[in-house]
Simulated scan of single mutants.
Amino acid sequence: MLAGGAQAQRSINVGLQAGGTMSWVTFAIERYGLDQQLGFKLNATTYASKDATRVALRSGASQIVVDDFLEVTLLRQKGFPVSAVYPFSLLTGGVVVPQDSPIRTVADLRGKTLGATSLTDKTLLILRAYAKATAGFDVQEASKVVSVSSPLMEQFMNRGEIEAGIPFWHHNARMVSGGKFRQLISSGDLLRGLGLPKNVPLLYIVARTDTDPATLGLFLKAVLLAEEKMKSDAAFWPAMLDANLYALPDRAQLPALRSQWAAGLPAHWTAADLNATLLLTRKMIAVAGPDVVGLTRLDTRAFNTSYQP
């Protein structure tokens, strides 16, 4: 009785970025009662920005957040006790162009105007490395790269202000499913062209190292169980939209969103996955330089492959 009661008192604090897909997963965990079934309490707090979630993690207000593979190294370098404990999402999406665009290959991007969410966008850095390796030019130098927020990329292309774009994966799915745009090249094909596996983790579940290991293990198990239910439960997706966790003006695009989300789920967490992330970082640094990427090397000690829920 005492042991069961003690287990029921386990809790974990998760920091969510507003609009981020971890909020979908925590919604699923609570919807299906997975935290209760596994014997812990999930405390989820939503923050306005990714920077705010990082502050919460650093202060200890949150024990878990989702962030990319570069940020966890930067946090460690600053002395914060955190590590990436499980991949959350693969690098998905790609480069999008209008359906009737004369751009047919990456080589055709030379001299064109390309929209990206930032100059440090991971897909842009990978595209730069790919174009350098396969077409002999760096799009940052031979093309015009402009900063465009992902939700506005479709409008900019419709007006002809940009000729290609790198939207976030969910906007990519929505744009392509509407029929007016096509994917020039996927992130997976960019990675393959660089000699890397197509399934390279981009986002990780990052935890404070002072988090109780047993409770963290239960949380990771709940995440995987929730994702399995989300893949099979068609009723979950309208409920998620009704909960205002994502804005989708045209619900006809929901199947494409759901399919693209599922395609980005990691299948495993091994030393090989970590090595692929390491090699990708080296290639990005080689083409863009450490100042743009934000670090000189990836610290593999910031990653923990021991959790296998």
Rank of each mutant, 00 (worst) to 15 (best):
residue 2 L to Y: 06
residue 6 A to Q: 14
residue 7 Q to F: 01
residue 7 Q to V: 12
residue 10 R to V: 01
residue 10 R to G: 03
residue 11 S to L: 12
residue 12 I to F: 03
residue 14 V to W: 06
residue 14 V to K: 07
residue 14 V to Q: 05
residue 15 G to L: 11
residue 16 L to R: 10
residue 17 Q to Y: 10
residue 19 G to K: 11
residue 19 G to Y: 08
residue 21 T to F: 05
residue 22 M to C: 05
residue 25 V to E: 12
residue 34 L to W: 11
residue 34 L to G: 06
residue 37 Q to G: 04
residue 38 L to A: 06
residue 38 L to H: 03
residue 40 F to D: 08
residue 45 T to K: 14
residue 54 R to C: 02
residue 55 V to F: 05
residue 57 L to G: 02
residue 62 S to N: 05
residue 63 Q to F: 01
residue 71 E to G: 09
residue 72 V to N: 02
residue 78 K to S: 15
residue 78 K to Q: 15
residue 79 G to Q: 09
residue 81 P to F: 03
residue 85 V to H: 03
residue 93 G to I: 03
residue 93 G to D: 07
residue 98 P to F: 08
residue 99 Q to G: 01
residue 101 S to V: 01
residue 103 I to G: 06
residue 103 I to S: 07
residue 105 T to Q: 07
residue 110 R to V: 08
residue 110 R to H: 13
residue 110 R to S: 13
residue 117 T to I: 08
residue 120 T to N: 05
residue 122 K to P: 04
residue 123 T to M: 01
residue 128 R to G: 02
residue 134 T to V: 15
residue 144 K to G: 01
residue 144 K to T: 14
residue 145 V to I: 15
residue 146 V to H: 00
residue 146 V to A: 00
residue 151 P to Y: 11
residue 154 E to T: 04
residue 159 R to F: 12
residue 165 G to L: 00
residue 166 I to M: 02
residue 167 P to M: 06
residue 169 W to F: 13
residue 170 H to S: 13
residue 172 N to T: 11
residue 181 F to E: 06
residue 183 Q to G: 07
residue 184 L to C: 06
residue 185 I to L: 14
residue 191 L to D: 04
residue 193 G to N: 08
residue 196 L to Y: 15
residue 197 P to R: 06
residue 200 V to C: 07
residue 203 L to H: 11
residue 203 L to G: 07
residue 206 V to Q: 05
residue 210 D to P: 04
residue 213 P to S: 08
residue 214 A to C: 05
residue 218 L to N: 03
residue 226 A to F: 10
residue 227 E to D: 08
residue 229 K to G: 03
residue 231 K to Y: 01
residue 234 A to I: 04
residue 236 F to M: 10
residue 241 L to A: 13
residue 243 A to K: 09
residue 245 L to G: 08
residue 248 L to H: 01
residue 248 L to W: 02
residue 249 P to Y: 04
residue 249 P to M: 02
residue 251 R to V: 05
residue 256 A to N: 05
residue 263 A to W: 02
residue 265 L to G: 02
residue 266 P to V: 06
residue 266 P to Y: 11
residue 267 A to V: 11
residue 273 D to F: 12
residue 273 D to C: 12
residue 276 A to D: 14
residue 278 L to T: 15
residue 283 K to M: 14
residue 286 A to R: 03
residue 289 G to A: 11
residue 291 D to E: 15
residue 294 G to I: 10
residue 297 R to K: 14
residue 302 A to L: 11
residue 309 P to A: 10
residue 309 P to K: 09
